[in-house]
Simulated assay, not measured.
Amino acid sequence: MAETKSYQVLWSHTAQQDLTEIIEYIAQDSIEDALAILQKLETKAALLITLPNRGRVVPELLHTGISQYRELISAPWRIVYRVDNKQVLIMAVLDSRRDLQTVLLNRLAR
Protein backbone atom coordinates (compact mmCIF):
# COMPACT_ATOMS: atom_id res chain seq x y z
CA MET A 1 0.00 0.00 0.00
CA ALA A 2 1.42 3.39 -0.98
CA GLU A 3 2.15 5.87 1.76
CA THR A 4 0.03 9.01 1.66
CA LYS A 5 2.07 12.18 1.75
CA SER A 6 0.99 14.63 4.39
CA TYR A 7 1.33 18.39 4.08
CA GLN A 8 1.03 21.04 6.75
CA VAL A 9 -1.74 23.56 6.02
CA LEU A 10 -0.97 27.04 7.35
CA TRP A 11 -3.12 30.16 7.19
CA SER A 12 -1.42 33.48 6.44
CA HIS A 13 -2.38 36.46 8.57
CA THR A 14 -4.20 37.94 5.57
CA ALA A 15 -6.22 34.75 5.00
CA GLN A 16 -7.13 34.58 8.70
CA GLN A 17 -8.26 38.21 8.48
CA ASP A 18 -10.34 37.43 5.36
CA LEU A 19 -12.00 34.52 7.15
CA THR A 20 -12.74 36.59 10.25
CA GLU A 21 -14.29 39.39 8.16
CA ILE A 22 -16.48 36.94 6.24
CA ILE A 23 -17.69 35.21 9.40
CA GLU A 24 -18.31 38.45 11.29
CA TYR A 25 -20.29 39.85 8.37
CA ILE A 26 -22.49 36.74 8.08
CA ALA A 27 -22.90 36.56 11.88
CA GLN A 28 -24.65 39.94 11.81
CA ASP A 29 -27.60 38.10 10.26
CA SER A 30 -27.12 34.57 11.55
CA ILE A 31 -24.57 33.14 13.95
CA GLU A 32 -25.58 29.62 12.92
CA ASP A 33 -24.95 30.36 9.23
CA ALA A 34 -21.63 32.01 10.08
CA LEU A 35 -20.46 28.98 12.06
CA ALA A 36 -21.60 26.60 9.31
CA ILE A 37 -19.69 28.58 6.68
CA LEU A 38 -16.60 28.74 8.90
CA GLN A 39 -16.68 24.96 9.27
CA LYS A 40 -17.25 24.52 5.53
CA LEU A 41 -14.26 26.71 4.59
CA GLU A 42 -11.94 25.17 7.20
CA THR A 43 -12.94 21.64 6.14
CA LYS A 44 -12.34 22.48 2.47
CA ALA A 45 -8.88 23.89 3.26
CA ALA A 46 -8.04 20.82 5.38
CA LEU A 47 -8.42 18.64 2.27
CA LEU A 48 -5.10 20.10 1.13
CA ILE A 49 -3.29 18.05 3.80
CA THR A 50 -3.14 15.05 1.46
CA LEU A 51 -3.71 16.41 -2.05
CA PRO A 52 -2.42 19.98 -2.24
CA ASN A 53 -2.50 20.17 -6.03
CA ARG A 54 -6.21 19.31 -6.20
CA GLY A 55 -7.11 22.98 -6.76
CA ARG A 56 -6.83 24.66 -10.13
CA VAL A 57 -4.27 27.33 -10.94
CA VAL A 58 -5.91 30.74 -10.39
CA PRO A 59 -6.97 31.77 -13.93
CA GLU A 60 -6.72 35.53 -13.33
CA LEU A 61 -3.10 35.13 -12.28
CA LEU A 62 -2.21 32.54 -14.91
CA HIS A 63 -3.11 35.10 -17.60
CA THR A 64 -0.32 37.31 -16.20
CA GLY A 65 2.20 34.47 -16.12
CA ILE A 66 1.88 33.66 -12.40
CA SER A 67 1.24 29.96 -11.92
CA GLN A 68 2.30 29.12 -8.36
CA TYR A 69 -1.08 29.98 -6.82
CA ARG A 70 -3.97 27.51 -6.80
CA GLU A 71 -7.51 27.74 -5.52
CA LEU A 72 -10.31 25.66 -4.10
CA ILE A 73 -13.85 26.84 -4.70
CA SER A 74 -16.39 26.80 -1.89
CA ALA A 75 -19.02 28.96 -3.55
CA PRO A 76 -19.13 31.89 -3.41
CA TRP A 77 -15.65 31.87 -1.85
CA ARG A 78 -12.29 31.06 -3.34
CA ILE A 79 -9.53 29.73 -1.08
CA VAL A 80 -6.25 30.83 -2.68
CA TYR A 81 -3.07 29.02 -1.67
CA ARG A 82 0.41 27.97 -2.74
CA VAL A 83 2.34 24.79 -2.10
CA ASP A 84 5.92 25.07 -0.85
CA ASN A 85 7.73 21.80 -0.12
CA LYS A 86 5.63 20.05 2.56
CA GLN A 87 3.55 23.13 3.41
CA VAL A 88 0.38 24.58 1.97
CA LEU A 89 0.01 28.27 2.72
CA ILE A 90 -3.53 29.65 2.50
CA MET A 91 -3.01 33.16 1.13
CA ALA A 92 -6.56 34.50 0.90
CA VAL A 93 -10.25 33.71 1.16
CA LEU A 94 -12.06 35.87 -1.36
CA ASP A 95 -15.61 36.45 -2.50
CA SER A 96 -15.76 35.33 -6.12
CA ARG A 97 -18.20 38.13 -6.91
CA ARG A 98 -15.42 40.72 -6.51
CA ASP A 99 -12.93 41.82 -9.17
CA LEU A 100 -10.46 39.10 -8.28
CA GLN A 101 -7.73 39.97 -10.73
CA THR A 102 -7.11 43.32 -9.07
CA VAL A 103 -7.42 41.91 -5.54
CA LEU A 104 -5.13 38.97 -6.23
CA LEU A 105 -2.49 40.93 -8.09
CA ASN A 106 -2.33 43.51 -5.30
CA ARG A 107 -2.01 40.82 -2.63
CA LEU A 108 -0.03 38.03 -4.22
CA ALA A 109 2.16 39.35 -6.98
CA ARG A 110 4.74 41.15 -4.88
Results as ranks from 00 to 15, higher is better:
110 R>G: 05
43 T>A: 12
98 R>S: 10
44 K>C: 07
57 V>Q: 08
92 A>K: 11
60 E>R: 04
108 L>C: 05
90 I>Y: 01
42 E>C: 05
24 E>M: 07
90 I>R: 06
53 N>A: 12
94 L>E: 10
54 R>H: 06
47 L>C: 07
83 V>M: 08
86 K>L: 11
48 L>V: 14
75 A>G: 03
6 S>E: 13
29 D>R: 12
21 E>C: 06
6 S>H: 13
105 L>Y: 06
34 A>W: 04
23 I>D: 03
70 R>A: 07
28 Q>C: 06
88 V>F: 05
60 E>L: 01
99 D>Y: 10
76 P>V: 14
20 T>W: 13
33 D>W: 04
33 D>T: 15
5 K>E: 12
68 Q>C: 01
24 E>C: 04
68 Q>F: 07
22 I>N: 01
91 M>A: 13
109 A>V: 15
45 A>S: 11
75 A>K: 12
26 I>A: 02
65 G>M: 03
24 E>T: 12
48 L>H: 02
48 L>Y: 07
101 Q>K: 11
73 I>A: 04
105 L>F: 08
54 R>E: 05
7 Y>M: 09
95 D>F: 12
87 Q>M: 06
100 L>P: 00
92 A>I: 09
77 W>Q: 07
69 Y>S: 02
110 R>F: 09
109 A>D: 09
37 I>G: 00
90 I>M: 02
79 I>E: 00
75 A>Y: 10
28 Q>R: 14
62 L>A: 12
108 L>F: 05
39 Q>L: 10
81 Y>D: 02
32 E>C: 01
100 L>K: 05
50 T>W: 05
22 I>L: 06
30 S>H: 05
